[in-house]
């Protein structure tokens, strides 16, 4: 009995001393933090992806509180909704941002872009691209080792095992831009999500001359400028043997898609065309 009592008293005393020490230490080292930082952090998606340009959500919350105007700050994951809430807490206003999404500008799947050699090094795009142009004739195209997949914190991009190309999951992509930075070939771009998620873009980054580009890939942009001519909104420019569509100007009329001789222009989420079913069948990427 005595022994038990002794143990209880002894442990109790240790506990009491520890608690007192902890209390005073926490008083001495107390840091005054703006309570709004915590409230903003609660709203933020807590993905810590760094898409905003700050180290994690806490850093972004701090920046929001400090900032005079919120126009330069944007959480790509939470989008406008989150930013409006943040602005509400801080009593500031934010500009409406247009939702963006990542698109992969390469369409050279295994059939369109034949393999010319066999890569046996580490399966990593950065390593492969610093070694050589890649295992196909196109030195601009996707290498398919999935650095973008590794970079994505939202499980929103995956390599399709059939085409060996990355595909963006529209429901999950938050346009944080991690994959854009990860791709050593600069194939991924953030583009406007578009009305009903409809988008048109040139699915090619090949800057070789048309003949050479076409030789290595069936769906390469050959810079024939047909799309440029047909576009009623002057949305298409051709530079370095490569067409690109300005998504600010593009009105999604799809004229360029029909015009492109190599099916290099990709349309996403459009209803199937009834009058010209042939083209749809020829163009495997428009079937979603």
């Amino acid at each position: 009995m005595n022994l038990i009592l002794l143990a209880v008293i002894f442990l109790g005393a240790i506990g009491a001393i520890g608690a007192t020490v902890l209390y005073f230490v926490s008083q001495a080292f107390h840091v005054e933090e703006d309570p709004r930082i915590g409230r903003i952090q609660d709203i933020l998606p807590a993905a810590n992806c760094g898409g905003c340009g700050y180290p994690g959500c806490a850093g972004f919350a701090g920046a929001c509180v400090k900032a005079e105007v919120l126009d330069e700050l944007f959480c790509p994951v939470g989008g406008s909704e989150t930013m409006n809430k943040v602005a509400g807490i801080l009593g500031k206003t934010v500009r409406e941002k247009i939702p963006m999404i990542a698109v992969v500008r390469c369409n050279g799947n295994c059939e369109n872009r034949l393999r010319t050699n066999y890569y046996d090094g580490t399966s990593n795009c950065a390593i492969s691209s610093s070694l050589y142009g890649g295992d196909t004739g196109c030195s601009y195209g996707c290498l398919g080792h999935g650095d973008c997949v590794d970079a994505c914190s939202f499980d929103a991009i995956h390599i399709n095992p059939e085409t060996l190309l990355p595909e963006v999951d529209e429901g999950k992509c938050t346009s944080c831009g991690a994959c854009v930075k990860a791709c050593p070939k600069q194939l991924i771009q953030l583009r406007k999500k578009g009305i009903k998620s409809r988008r048109i873009y040139v699915g090619c980054m090949n800057k070789d001359k048309g003949v050479i580009a076409r030789k290595s890939c069936n769906v390469a942009c050959i810079a024939c400028s047909k799309c440029q001519k047909v576009c009623p909104f002057e949305a298409i420019t051709i530079e370095d043997n490569l067409a690109s569509i300005n998504d600010d100007r593009c009105r999604l009329c799809r004229k360029c898609v029909d015009e492109c001789p190599t099916s290099a222009i990709v349309e996403l989420n459009f209803p199937l065309k009834k009058e010209k079913p042939l083209i749809v069948e020829e163009d495997p990427i428009s079937i979603i």
Partner: peptide
């Protein structure tokens, strides 16, 4: 056939 390419 296709040549193997890998870093040194």
């Amino acid at each position: 056939k296709q040549l193997i390419v890998s870093p040194s």
